[in-house]
Design a protein around this nucleic acid. Structure first.
Length: 237
DNA sequence: AGTATGCGTCTTCCCTCCGG
DNA sequence: CCGGAGGGAAGACGCATACT
């Protein structure tokens, strides 16, 4: 499993490095001392896993995750206590309190999903349903699998992300997002909306040859005539 | 006659720049 | 560094025309 360590303290990286020597399936492909370095590394190397500190000079670990399009598995290494982390509502894979205990590290690694898909040739950077994205809304953070997101809605300079009962905002444009998403699973229903096709429950004809798409959960999205044509074409292929 | 298609104009979005 | 305005462009609307 290709792994990158992100921590501003050199000693902390060294420590983790040596601890990980006992875990041959964890292959350390890079180290970064701050969020910007890590951003470059992650985009170049597409690791499967990050060990990451949260507090770092410059950007925090959360801000780093927000910048990423493809978010790897993350194990936080932090001096925060459990309660402080829970305040963020981060459902990360796991977190390790510093100083890291070898037994805890072993536990965390054993919890990693097996049969990991190889991200080796991620040359097309399209996101699939299995990929997760990181969203932050104020103090709350989530890792959300794309398969749980039913709808993206443009709202000013932000995008509302509909999943579960939450609607946090991310600050990207729908166009940029649309390019990243897999066209087989996500459809640009209109200028304002991108829908997850696997959440579509029903389709009704609408005025002027448009469509009204009903999503599981009750949300309804209007598809204009132009997009409806593309939609029908897609479904027939 | 009602529904599909094409075209021109108008609206909305979004990216960039600028000022606080 | 953040927030808001402006301009460019993609998409929606409305009308006209073609087709079944």
């Amino acid at each position: 499993m290709r792994t990158i360590i992100v921590d501003d303290e050199r000693l902390a990286r060294k420590e983790l490095n040596s601890l990980l020597e006992e875990h041959p399936d964890i292959e350390i492909v890079g180290e970064a001392a701050n969020a910007d370095e890590a951003y470059e590394l992650i985009n170049d190397l597409h690791p499967d896993l990050l060990f990451m500190d949260i507090q770092m000079p410059g950007k925090t670990g959360f801000e780093l995750l927000e910048m990423l399009d493809n978010v790897p598995k993350v194990i936080f290494t932090t001096a925060y206590d459990e309660f402080a982390l829970k305040a963020f509502e981060v459902n990360a894979l796991d977190y390790l309190l510093k100083p890291i205990q070898p037994e805890r590290l072993r536990d965390s690694i054993s919890k990693l999903p097996k049969g990991q898909k190889t991200t080796e040739n991620m040359t097309d950077k399209r996101l699939t349903l299995e990929d997760q994205v990181f969203v932050k809304d104020g103090d709350k953070c989530w890792f959300v699998s794309l398969s749980n997101i039913r709808l993206f809605e443009s709202d000013g300079n932000y995008i509302k992300v509909y999943f579960d009962s939450n609607r946090p905002m991310i600050h990207k444009s729908l166009n940029a997002l649309d390019e990243k998403l897999d066209a087989r699973h996500f459809f640009r229903a209109s200028r304002k909306h991108i829908v997850n096709l696997s959440w579509v429950e029903g389709i009704e004809p609408w005025f002027n040859g448009g469509l009204m798409v009903r999503l599981k959960g009750g949300d309804k999205v209007e598809v204009s005539r132009r997009q409806a044509a593309k939609f029908k074409e897609m479904m027939s292929l």
